[in-house]
Design a protein around this nucleic acid. Sequence first.
DNA 1: CTAAATGCAAAAAGTTTGCAAACGT
DNA 2: ACGTTTGCAAACTTTTTGCATTTAG
Lengths: 139, 139
Amino acid sequence: MSKLEDAIAKMKSSNVRITTQRVAVLEYLLNCEFHPSADEIYKAMNTRFPSISRATIYNNLNILCENGLARELTFGNAPSRFDGNTKDHYHIICNNCGKIADLQYPLLKEIEVFVEQIAEFKVSHHRLDIYGKCVTCYD
Amino acid sequence: MSKLEDAIAKMKSSNVRITTQRVAVLEYLLNCEFHPSADEIYKAMNTRFPSISRATIYNNLNILCENGLARELTFGNAPSRFDGNTKDHYHIICNNCGKIADLQYPLLKEIEVFVEQIAEFKVSHHRLDIYGKCVTCYD
DNA sequence: CTAAATGCAAAAAGTTTGCAAACGT
DNA sequence: ACGTTTGCAAACTTTTTGCATTTAG
């Protein structure tokens, strides 16, 4: 079962309607080797669906994220990036060119345990981003 | 030497001009027991300076951040929050009410070392946020 | 005196919303 | 058929910019 078929099955079981545009956005995210912005997704979709609207892109991205089929990566005032990889992982971000790379690292469960102990707080998840300069950006 | 005097000394040595509004923003941040947005800072300043402009707030926040006297905490499409505490620390954020608490935890140097080893990447810093529900927000 | 900061208004950028028409189930 | 999604335009929010006036050093 391909990742796309798997994701479509997930949509069906969550009663998320299978529309052409929605599947196209999902497929694009699953096969994307970088972390696209809504606008980049819009432009990519635009070649196949010349009349697609940005609102449709945003709407579908939100629905996919709400249903665990994509992740939104927010970066301050910069446009959000989207990630079709919903497995837990961290990110490495270049301060200079903005490139985002995935970082596989053992999940920091101990910090979550610590927080639940010291604070009266029920942890749901955490986010870790490493900033710096990528190879192509340092002298 | 108070935190404010200390910060003003830092401004002088960085050739950052000491204006009434700038010092007021800085003082507000240093004494603020929460993490205010630009708008909250604007409203607080507005009582003392009825004609202050949002542009002045943003301008000063940017200058303070650029000079290491404040930190901007970005949260996606939600307005940025500002932190007068420039010592390294993490944050705990409530998914429900949005409240932000400081988290003192030993800095994760080992992850930075790891990233520099596996990736060709010069790390400058990292950010870690813990999400979940605060006491007042869980049943 | 000079360069930077202020206040104002307008612009910019990203995202959301309202609505009629089209579509999925 | 029904309710959801689409596409369009307009609205909205946060932040930035341009510019004349004021202020700090």
